[in-house]
C-alpha cells in the first residue's frame, strides 16, 4: 500500500534531452527517463554510449541544449539558485571517489552540511559518525583519505553524499576503479541503501547488482535509450538487438 503510493511520486523526469559537446559530437539524442521515488534504476551500455553524460546532466555537471529535466519538482534551467538547490538534494558518487585529500574523513563528511546547510558543526559530526558506522569505517574517521583503501574511500564518498541527506543518489560507475576484492563491500553498502528506500540512479557494469537490486534497467548506446525493462526481463529476454549484443559481450 505505502509502496504503491510512493511509486506514484516522480523524483526525476527527463524529456527529450539533447546534448552536443563543444566539438560537435551529439552525445545525447532525445533521451527520456522517469524515475519514481524509492526506485533503483541501473543504466548500462557500452563505453561511449553517453550513460555517464546522461547521469551528469541530472545535477548540472553536464549541460544539455534542448529538452527538460525536472528533479523533485525543480526544473534544471538557467537559474543558478535552482541549480544549487538541485545539487543540495542530489548526491553523487564518482568512479574516482573524489574525496578531498587535504581533509580528514570526518571533515570530508561535515564540510558541505556546515557550509551549505549552515548546520552546527557538533550536530553534523554526530550524524557523520553514525553514517560512517553504517558504512563500516567509523574507526578511520580521523585519518586522511590517502591512508584508506579504494573500497574504504568509496564508502566514505557514499557517506559524504548521504550526510547532505539527499533525496536522490547518483552513482557514476562506483566500482570501476576498485580492485576486484573491494567491489563487493561497496555494492553491499549500495544494496543496503536501496533497501532503506533511497531513490538511486546507477551507471554500472555489475550485472549481479543490477539483477538483485534494480527495479528497472536502462540500456543506452550511441547516446540513445534503446530499452527500459525490469531486470529479470532485460537479462533473460532482451528485446532490442543492441541489448542482445551488449549482453552477449559482457557475459
Amino acid at each position: 500500500m505505502t509502496q504503491a503510493l510512493a511509486a506514484d511520486v516522480v523524483m526525476l523526469e527527463a524529456r527529450g534531452v539533447n546534448t552536443w559537446y563543444p566539438n560537435g559530437h551529439h552525445a545525447l539524442r532525445n533521451v527520456d527517463l522517469t524515475v519514481h521515488q524509492g526506485e533503483v534504476v541501473v543504466i548500462m551500455g557500452p563505453s561511449g554510449s553517453g550513460k555517464s553524460t546522461f547521469l551528469r546532466t541530472f545535477n548540472g555537471l553536464e549541460d544539455f541544449q534542448t529538452g527538460s529535466i525536472i528533479i523533485d519538482g525543480i526544473n534544471i534551467g538557467d537559474d543558478l539558485r535552482q541549480r544549487d538547490a538541485i545539487r543540495r538534494e542530489v548526491g553523487m558518487v564518482f568512479q574516482q571517489f573524489n574525496l578531498f585529500p587535504h581533509l580528514t574523513v570526518l571533515d570530508n563528511l561535515t564540510l558541505a552540511p556546515v557550509l551549505v546547510r549552515g548546520r552546527a558543526k557538533t550536530q553534523v559530526e554526530r550524524q557523520a559518525l553514525e553514517l560512517l558506522e553504517r558504512v563500516g569505517i567509523h574507526e578511520q574517521a580521523h585519518k586522511y583519505p590517502g591512508q584508506l583503501s579504494g573500497g574504504q574511500q568509496q564508502r566514505v564518498a557514499i557517506a559524504r553524499s548521504l550526510c547532505m541527506e539527499p533525496r536522490l543518489m547518483l552513482f557514476d560507475e562506483p566500482t570501476s576503479a576498485l580492485d576486484p576484492e573491494m567491489v563487493q563491500e561497496v555494492l553491499q553498502v549500495m544494496q543496503e541503501l536501496a533497501a532503506g528506500g533511497m531513490t538511486m540512479v546507477v551507471v554500472t557494469h555489475e550485472v549481479r547488482f543490477a539483477r538483485q537490486v534494480a527495479d528497472r534497467v536502462v540500456l543506452m548506446a550511441d547516446g540513445e535509450v534503446l530499452e527500459i525493462a525490469a531486470p529479470e526481463q532485460f537479462f533473460s529476454n532482451p528485446q532490442h538487438p543492441r541489448s542482445q549484443q551488449f549482453l552477449s559481450q559482457i557475459n
Binding site: 534551467g77 538557467d78 543558478l80 541549480r83
Partner: peptide
C-alpha cells in the same frame, strides 16, 4: 519562464 530569472542568478547572462 526564462525571462523571469533575475540577472544575478542567470547562468548564461551572469558571466
Amino acid at each position: 519562464m526564462r525571462a523571469r530569472i533575475p540577472w544575478w542568478r542567470h547562468r548564461r547572462v551572469l558571466p
